[in-house]
Design a protein around this nucleic acid. Structure first.
Length: 755
DNA sequence: GTTTCGCATCTTTTT
DNA sequence: GATGCGAAAC
């Protein structure tokens, strides 16, 4: 049953209605928190369908599966079942779906494997090892993000190798071989018939670039209307793909982007605000709408959000307001320890529930890092409050689940080296590391896959026999997968490999849990195989290969369980787009929120502030902020000052306040502020505090022999200068640190001249 | 080839 | 505090 047009348009305010009905040409909607953004997006799509646009001509891109699913559901309510044919999904899932169809244009198999970040990391680790590079100089995480950002900026290995700027930075960081690692990583992924998360975007661009007529043309014709949610979180590559699809000669340029620069919290992984700025240039006929009325939160909460975000200079001008009552003041809680913080929050949750009779599902605890969840879990258990932790280890990342999935992956794609290595000797079958290394080396020399080396590489009769047995088993699985359903194949594999039997012999509590997880995985596969309701990447494709591609893009946010009543525990990042009656933002301390990694750059602090802005605007009625004087980190006690963000709130909004001035900072009292445990010197001079009016010296100002101060390393003396202009590098001696001779690239350093 | 133990590192945030 | 890796023992 559909709702008539007049009805749904009546549910919108003036600006919202304009944003919905202005369907032709480029449109930008700047949407403050709680301003009805989702409503605008869904009604806009519904309106298009009402205006005789076919649902499958509409492409709607979001960042999470959950957002996409909700949107589809809501549109179906307004526009009827035909909305199911809408193309709505995450960038990654929509493009994976296209790539599956178009794989042959890229010389990839359509059942290509999607490498998750663990796969990428283990592949990179192996490459670094094989190249005999020092893993301390080449940490996988750093290398991975370097490669990821190269891909996100459309820099191929070739371009990377030729890019003097990039190479110079790498050399400066004593990692001159990054380009070679990148080249090899890309080659191995291709060899394995695998794409990583970035490839799903990168290869889509490449696909469009290389096949402008037959492929790109097809999708241009199909998608007449584009919608992009959370546009502030798109990166260069995502925007490049969007432009391919919509910005061409003769295009109607029906693209609608929705976003909020104040909620941009993914700059760390390449999202760039430039996209919003460029959008106005790339689409001159742009019409802009600003949604500024907040319908979600009480006045106090909206005001707090405004006060905080005001400290960020770079912003699109807008003023968020609400006509709601003041509501309850914001609770501010100070505790002596992290455990105490857990207890107080649990107390308040009980109190809030008793007083207001709200469901658990209306309550959320939000923290900066997933590791902070532990104390809260403990107290939720102790108080018998049902809760659920999102983030952290997801279901599909658990060892036993990954093992079975690895078998399935190899069954579908034998070249999938990450999966193959995981299971070739699990359960134990006598094929150890030295044998695998031999095969692997041979494979590299011959440029063939590890799997193919099993037949070609010379080996002892014993190893040969074992490997052939393994190979036959997998081939048998592959045959099964072609004849039987994904579920039948998977159960057969779980049985035949002895995975389930191994787990059954373990009667410990954890062992039982593991068995349960494998059973749950099999249940999931069954649901996928047999249940039409379960969403798949390609709606009609129930193959094992389709299953694997589908789950590799799921996160535990996407698990069901909406019907259960639990308190939500999650990171602030994960909470974006969600809302709750009562929100507890915890751990508001320097070095945590804002994170210590952000301390040295003003831009990073601004991003932390936007993150805090996102956190507080999740609350509808009650917002509670808390911080602890001490907490355990890596099993060590650390002491942090209250977060600077708390000082950006005016006292008249706060309740239960610790008077700010009375709360003398530890640094003022002369204590050394312990920042994690990475610098072990206990009584370090307070060189970390830079004067408020501090302006960093320009690279040219720094001269040999000068005394300078570095925000992290303290005072030091310049003992050498080399390079010029942009690549001017100083060698500075910092007596206060463990490794006192440092080479500092002046372009990046924030030095203060002391002479 | 397999197991065990000690050590280092980890924690930012996610598709 | 947990995990994962490498060296050394088995």
């Amino acid at each position: 049953m559909e709702i008539s047009e007049t009805t749904y348009l009546d549910e919108l305010n003036d600006v919202q209605r304009q944003a919905v009905t202005c369907t032709e040409g480029p449109v930008m909607v700047i949407a403050g928190p709680g301003s009805g953004k989702t409503r605008v997006l869904t009604y806009r799509i519904a309106h298009l369908i009402h205006s005789q646009v076919y649902p499958d001509q509409i492409l709607s891109l979001t960042f999470t599966n959950k957002a996409a699913r909700e949107m589809k559901e809501r549109i179906t309510k307004v526009a009827g079942d035909s909305a199911q044919r809408l193309w709505a999904g995450t960038f990654h899932s929509i493009f994976a779906r296209m790539l599956r169809v178009e794989a042959k244009h890229l010389n990839y198999p359509s059942n290509f494997t999607i490498y998750d970040s663990d796969d990428s990391k283990s592949l990179l680790g192996r490459i670094i090892k094989e190249m005999h590079l020092d893993k301390n100089l080449y940490p996988v995480n750093t290398i991975r993000s370097r490669i990821s950002s190269a891909k996100s900026n459309l820099i191929t290995p070739k371009l990377y190798a030729a890019d003097e700027e990039l190479r110079k930075i790498d050399r400066f960081q004593r990692r001159p071989m990054v380009y070679a690692i990148y080249e090899r990583y890309v080659r191995q992924c291709f060899q394995a018939g695998a794409m990583d998360f970035d490839d799903l975007l990168y290869k889509t661009f490449e696909l469009f670039q290389k096949n402008p007529d037959d492929v790109l043309g097809k999708y241009r014709n199909r998608f007449r209307y584009l919608l992009v949610d959370e546009f502030q979180d798109t990166n260069f590559l995502q925007y490049a793909i969007l432009k391919k699809l919509i910005r061409y000669e003769g295009s109607a340029k029906n693209i609608c982007i929705v976003g909020d620069d104040a909620q941009s919290i993914y700059a760390f992984r390449g999202a760039t605000i430039d996209n919003i700025l460029n959008f106005q240039k790339d689409f001159p006929a742009l019409q802009t709408f600003k949604l500024e009325q907040n319908y979600r939160s009480t006045h106090y909460i909206v005001e707090a959000a405004n006060q905080v975000i005001r400290h960020n200079k770079k912003q699109i001008q807008k003023s968020i307001w609400t006509d709601q009552k003041s509501g309850q003041k914001i609770k501010l809680i100070k505790t002596i320890s992290d455990a105490e913080e857990g207890r107080r929050v649990a107390d308040l949750i009980v109190e809030f529930k008793n007083r207001n009779h709200v469901a658990n599902s209306e309550i959320a605890i939000l923290y900066r890092t997933n590791a902070q969840s532990r104390v809260f879990e403990e107290y939720m258990r102790r108080y018998n409050i049902p809760y659920r932790v999102f983030g952290g280890l997801s279901f599909y990342q658990r060892k036993e689940v990954k093992d079975l999935i690895a078998y399935l992956r190899v069954t579908v794609n034998q070249r999938d080296e990450e999966a193959l290595r995981r299971i070739i000797n699990y359960p134990k079958r006598g094929i150890g590391n030295s044998s695998i290394d031999k095969f692997s080396q041979f494979a590299a020399e011959q440029s063939i896959s590890l799997w193919d080396s099993f037949d070609l590489c010379p080996a002892s009769p014993r190893v040969r026999k074992l490997v052939q047995q393994f190979k036959q088993m997998i081939t048998l699985f592959t045959d099964k997968a072609e004849k039987y359903s994904a579920f039948d194949t998977a159960s057969y594999i779980a049985d035949r490999t002895g995975l389930v039997d191994t787990l059954k012999t373990d009667n410990s509590i954890e062992g039982l849990g593991r068995l349960e997880n494998v059973t749950a995985l099999l249940d999931g596969i069954q649901a996928f195989s047999e249940d039409d309701e379960v969403e798949t990447l390609l709606s009609d494709d129930k193959s094992l290969s389709s299953y694997l591609q589908t789950i590799s893009l799921l996160t535990d946010m996407d698990e069901k369980g909406d019907f259960l009543d639990f308190v939500t525990l999650m990171s602030v990042h994960a909470a974006k787009g969600l809302e709750y009656d009562a929100v507890f933002v915890v751990g508001l301390e320097e070095n945590i929120f804002p994170s210590f990694q952000s301390m040295e750059s003003a831009d990073a602090i601004d991003e932390e502030r936007r993150l805090f802005y996102v956190a507080i605007t999740r609350a509808r009625k009650l917002l509670t902020l808390s911080f602890a004087n001490s907490r355990y980190r890596y099993g060590k006690m650390v002491y942090n000052d209250r977060s600077r963000f708390l000082n950006e709130l005016s006292e008249d909004l706060l309740d239960g306040v610790v008077p700010r001035r009375a709360e003398q900072s530890r640094a003022e009292k002369g204590y050394a502020t312990v920042r994690g445990n990475f610098e072990k010197k206990p009584a370090r001079k307070q060189t970390l505090v830079m004067p408020a009016d501090f302006v960093p010296a320009t690279p040219q100002e720094i001269q040999n022999g000068m005394k300078v101060r570095h925000p992290r390393f303290g005072e030091g003396k310049v003992i050498n200068i080399d390079g010029d202009n942009q690549s001017r590098v100083a060698t500075i001696f910092f007596p206060d640190i463990s490794n006192p001779r440092r080479r500092i690239m002046l372009k990046f350093a924030k030095l203060q001249i002391l002479d």
